[in-house]
Design a protein around this nucleic acid. Sequence first.
RNA 1: GGCGAGGUUCCCGAGUGGUCAAAGGGGGCAGACUGUAAAUCUGUUGGCGGAUGCCUUCGGUGGUUCAAAUCCACCCCUCGCCA
Length: 412
Amino acid sequence: MEVLQSLNDRNLVYQMTNEERLNELLNAGSLSFYIGFDATASSLHLGHLVPLMIASHLQKAGHKPHILIGGATALVGDPSGRSTERSLESRDTINNWAVELKVQMTRFLDFDDENTNGAVLLNNVDWLNKLNYINFLRDIGKHFSVNRMLTAESVKQRLETGLSFLEFNYMLLQSYDFLHLFRERNCILQVGGADQWGNIVAGIDLIRRKESAEVYGFTCPLVTTSTGEKMSKSQPGGAIWLDPNLTSPYQYYQFWINVDDRDAAYFMKLYTYLPVEEIAEFEKLTGADTRKTKEKLAFEATAIAHGLEEAEKAQNAAKALFAGNGNQKNVPSTDIPLSRLADGVSAIDLFTETGLCPSRGEVRRLGRQGGLYIQGERVSTPEDRITENMLEESSLLLRAGKKRYHRINFTG
RNA sequence: GGCGAGGUUCCCGAGUGGUCAAAGGGGGCAGACUGUAAAUCUGUUGGCGGAUGCCUUCGGUGGUUCAAAUCCACCCCUCGCCA
């Protein structure tokens, strides 16, 4: 099986260097490659998913992934693809983030060191921190032409809004990472997002100059939805994170099931392991049948990120709420002591405490607009207190708007 | 370092003493219509036990004033030209 071809069939490839030779190498045996993720938050989000999936596919094809957490480069901030300077975080914070990121990645990659191609997690703080400025300038800096760096797309854009020298150095550091990993780990391939192209080829050039060796790079497309939204932080309803504490598996599932029709099969290629032949069958579905595609997409994607069990729960909850034939026990819920009903609890309290609404004003607004429901009944006066004798069972199903649900279980 | 232009709410962007929680657009949210889709129309969009009340928000800190996003002083940051 041609690895590159299969990645290509899934729309996972954007550009690459020396395609022919790289293809040969990928088919010839196991090679070491690396993908870098800067630690800029405590969790990965949807924007990181495509590189992770590529790493996963390559590992399944027998290649050895090196996942580079950019603990040091995060301190610098990559200007690529962003219009303003990143805020600088403390070292301790970034180190803590790196630990959390690894946990999430274990869902996508096998980190078992028993396997010859088990993934390896590295933090570039381990080598970049030791660099001596003068030595670095003389060894590495002399190989970079400022004239050429200025023509890099990422830099060109920032030239208009401003770019500090700190960020301007990012390309050198990332190139140095590649050189280091080539020397120490024999990494001969770097994979990254399309916005990383400039940084990747800079690293390839550096290695050719320093080591007279040819290494390779390829980038994956920056995925946008059919309405042009980036798959990164800003999604309707806020960011979608891989950390289940930030975005629950249920919410994660819901995100996928709510994607635009036009994106369903496309996302299936990118974000699941389903064979392209099977996806082709889903692509034939049209109209309301597209929901079947989305159900499959949501289930598979959730299973990858959170495990099969969580995916089943999320699917079950969705069926209970939207199709009326699943078990409501898997709907996200909150326990509240029954004793609180002695004085009565208002819907305002319930909706804010469960996180369905961020503020009390929001509950009132929703109530005014007809978007508040308790047990399927529209609530227009959320100030009213609910008391124990109004309960028919020990739980209440809250609903905010069309599709946000939460259960309250009264205990004690 | 000099000169010029700027820093406004989630984003862009109006606003140059009270009528400003701040126009307009984008985005978000809700309702209607649907298929948990899209498109469209309408409403809404700082917080507070909902209130001609209070609190927080116009880069920061101090001032002037009955009253400051708006005026003054100092400071920080960004952009442009020059050095």
